[in-house]
């Protein structure tokens, strides 16, 4: 435990590095493309259009304002899935830095997840626009819960990114495996459908999935205009902290040999 506190202190000293890396990542992401930063918005909007066409017009979902129902879940999901799939490659991508210079290695996955997080926050501008257009009456108290939900999701995503980035250094296939895992995970999380249609025997699986609770919280605030259920919020928080702890410990173990393995 004192070891961990020392590490957090050191990370705090290196905060400017995190800021620099996030800035570099956000700036460099769409560099050279014609639409540039607009892609941050275009990409999720296109996904939204495709899923809405499939689910509203072809599968004829009965959910009211399906586009909104989907959108408020999809954006947080994209953040989460980008954090694990992209995050897994983050250490390997920075190997020149890792091999040649000392800094707390956690800086890299933290920066990566933070830059994805900033991207999500920007997308929330669009979400709020859509929410207003759709005429959802937002509850002020519920809105106060939104940052909490975001922080919990951030912790969860960070835990996963720490874990996957460290393991990928030793086992390069993980990056590709995670592409498949993240797709399966998306369909096993009630993003495009409602948890109520899930058969009862599968429910335990959905309940241990931390993303189920997180998505439900987002939806409560932004779609139903309600304060999220305390149980959802609490269980996602507990799972988020747990994931972070596991990710942190594994990362700390594995990082000692990064320079040799890369």
């Amino acid at each position: 435990m004192p070891h961990m506190i020392a590490q957090i202190k050191e990370l705090y000293a290196y905060r400017q590095m995190i800021v620099s890396l996030v800035r570099k990542d956000l700036r460099g992401r769409y560099k050279g493309s014609v639409l540039g930063f607009l892609w941050t918005f275009i990409n999720p909007l296109f996904q939204l259009v495709v899923y809405t066409i499939v689910f509203s017009y072809i599968l004829k979902s009965s959910i009211d304002k399906y586009y909104l129902y989907l959108f408020v879940a999809l954006i947080p999901w994209i953040f989460f899935s980008a954090s694990i799939t992209g995050g897994s490659a983050s250490i390997v991508a920075q190997k020149d830095l890792v091999k040649k210079i000392y800094f707390p290695r956690q800086v890299i996955p933290i920066s990566y997840v933070t830059s994805c997080f900033v991207n999500m926050l920007l997308c929330f501008i669009v979400i709020f626009a859509v929410v207003l257009v759709a005429g959802v009456r937002l509850d002020p108290l519920a809105l106060l819960c939104l940052p909490i939900v975001m922080v919990v999701e951030y912790l969860l995503a960070l835990g996963m990114a720490l874990l996957s980035s460290a393991v990928t250094v030793y086992f390069k296939d993980l990056e590709h495996i995670l592409g498949i895992v993240s797709m399966a995970w998306m369909y096993l999380t009630p993003i495009m459908y409602d948890k109520s249609i899930v058969p009862e025997r599968f429910l335990p699986l959905f309940n241990i999935n931390p993303m189920t609770h997180i998505i439900e919280c987002y939806r409560a605030v932004l779609y139903y205009g309600q304060v999220p259920q305390l149980s959802s919020l609490l269980s996602s928080f507990v799972l988020g902290v747990l994931f972070l702890l596991v990710g942190w410990i594994v990362f700390d173990r594995l990082q000692k040999h990064f320079a040799e393995e890369l």
């Binding site: 905060r15 400017q16 590095m17 620099s20 570099k24 210079i101 800094f103």
Partner: peptide, 30 residues
């Protein structure tokens, strides 16, 4: 450490911006 010079330099950023990036890797705050 003066082991790896210019760590994290980004060619498209200005010298001034790169000072910030590079120095931040040494653990300096803004």
């Amino acid at each position: 450490s003066l082991i790896e010079l210019g760590a994290g330099f980004h060619p498209d950023m200005s010298g001034r911006e790169n000072i910030y990036t590079n120095a931040s890797i040494f653990g300096l705050t803004k």
